[in-house]
Deep mutational scan, measured.
Amino acid sequence: SGNANTETLPSGWEQRKDPHGRTYYVDHNTRTTTWERPQPLPPGWERR
């Protein structure tokens, strides 16, 4: 039932692989990409 990797990503993020097989992350909220895995927001924090 779903990929465990995507469940731990913050809302709006997606994990992808480039043509060389390297994993990167897409932030659909800001339309940016990063090599660093995004950290889920700490409990009690809200994204503004």
Rank of each mutant, 00 (worst) to 15 (best):
G44C: 11
R31S: 09
R31L: 07
D27V: 00
W13F: 05
Y24W: 02
S1N: 01
P42G: 12
W13Y: 09
G2M: 10
P43L: 08
P19S: 10
D18V: 01
N5W: 07
R31T: 04
Q15Y: 07
T32R: 06
E7G: 04
T6G: 12
P38D: 00
S1W: 05
P43F: 10
N29L: 05
K17P: 02
S11L: 12
G44I: 04
H20W: 07
D27Q: 03
R22W: 03
Y24R: 01
E7S: 06
R22C: 11
E7M: 07
T6L: 09
R47C: 14
A4K: 15
W13E: 06
N3P: 07
N29M: 03
R31N: 11
W35A: 06
E14F: 00
R48H: 15
L9H: 07
S1M: 07
Y25D: 02
Y25L: 02
R47P: 15
Q15K: 08
T32N: 09
W35Q: 04
P19Y: 05
Y25M: 03
G44T: 11
P42F: 06
A4M: 15
K17C: 10
P10I: 03
H28S: 09
E36W: 12
Q15N: 03
D18S: 08
Y25V: 02
S1A: 12
D18H: 01
G44F: 08
D18P: 01
G44P: 13
K17V: 11
R22T: 15
Y24P: 02
T8G: 13
R48Q: 15
S11I: 11
T32F: 04
R47G: 15
Q39C: 09
W45D: 15
S1C: 09
R22G: 04
L41F: 12
N3Q: 07
N29A: 07
H28W: 07
S11C: 10
S11Y: 10
E46S: 11
R31M: 05
R22I: 11
Y24L: 03
T8K: 14
W35F: 12
R48G: 15
H20K: 13
P40M: 13
R48A: 15
P19C: 11
E14N: 02
T32S: 11
P19K: 13
G2C: 13
R47N: 15
D18I: 00
T30E: 04
W45T: 15
W13T: 03
T23A: 13
E36D: 14
H20T: 09
Q39K: 13
E36P: 00
R16A: 08
